[in-house]
């Protein structure tokens, strides 16, 4: 690109990228390795290969209950956040109105508020309106945190749409509702699926809010936190690895759905 290339500096820069990646991925890879290691406190040299921790969580009914709660919450949150996010994205795409910056701020700000504070505020508020301590409260809280992600993904897709497309459909005789069904939704469909899966993955990870808000019905991340606070158990690695694999599966599915949305088998 530029004329003066210095191989030494370029080499050092690439080494720096590698070091950053090692720093970022070592804990992730470590967690996988530890989950298959017999030692309770792994160190060098590593202990022997073992699936003990996976067997333990497999046999723990609490983990299963937490897992199903997480799935249930994730599915509801994905549906709610995607619906809300779609509405917000379409509103931003289509309309200009007084107070729009406030609307957008309200829609997009939640992820910037620390989860501890969100958890505190929501638990305090939801307990006042008798919504705390159950799965619904977790779904509400996750809906707030996840809808901005869904909105951003769908808005991005809408911005790739020829702005005349909607007007063309109106012009060809479809009213606004019909056009929504036959043009806007088909066009944004890949993003809608992506939003469903990504908000589900985010919900999987939002343990802190769940911890504060949920009482008896624990979701998986809350369970993880319980392990950390109580007896430290390498079972967390096994759970974490499984959660990671499920999250990544959601993302890969979303990626496949997002790819080549224009090409259609004929």
């Amino acid at each position: 690109m530029t004329g003066n290339r210095n191989p030494l500096i370029n080499g050092l820069l690439k080494l720096h990228i590698t070091l950053c990646l090692i720093f970022i991925f070592t804990p992730i890879a470590g967690s996988f390795v530890f989950s298959l290691n017999s030692d309770r406190f792994p160190s060098l040299p590593l202990g022997s290969f073992s699936t003990e921790w996976y067997r333990l969580i497999w046999e723990d009914p609490l983990v299963w209950a937490g897992f199903f709660n997480t799935l249930l919450v994730g599915a509801c949150v994905a549906a709610i956040a995607t619906l809300l996010g779609f509405g917000g994205a379409y509103t931003d795409f289509r309309y200009k109105f007084f107070g729009k910056p406030v609307y957008l701020a309200l829609a997009l700000l939640p992820p910037t508020i620390p989860v501890v504070i969100m958890g505190l505020a929501m638990l305090a508020f939801l307990s006042r309106v008798s919504l705390s301590g159950n799965v619904i409260s977790v779904i509400i809280a996750h809906g707030v945190m996840c809808s901005p992600f869904a909105m951003a993904i769908i808005r991005l897709r809408l911005s790739q749409m020829d702005p005349d497309l909607e007007a063309a459909a109106w012009n060809l005789g479809g009213n606004e509702w019909v056009t929504m069904r036959h043009v806007i939704i088909p066009f944004t469909k890949p993003a809608i699926y992506a939003a469903l899966f990504i908000t589900m993955a985010v919900s999987f990870d939002e343990f802190a809010v769940a911890w504060f808000v949920s009482g008896l019905n624990e979701t998986l991340p809350v369970k993880v936190l319980g392990f950390l606070q109580g007896q430290v158990s390498p079972r967390i690695n096994a759970i974490g690895s499984l959660a990671f694999v499920s999250s990544i599966s959601f993302i890969v599915i979303a990626q496949i759905l997002m790819r080549n949305p224009e090409s259609k088998p004929s």
Partner: peptide, 27 residues
């Protein structure tokens, strides 16, 4: 009052045939 757009505004998620059928479907 059908219109032909500068960008053509053809529906990318429909086939040629489905594009042409669109306004009949609306009717």
């Amino acid at each position: 009052t059908p219109m032909v757009w500068q960008s053509l505004a053809l529906f990318p998620f429909l086939t040629v045939q489905e594009n042409v059928e669109f306004s009949l479907k609306m009717r």
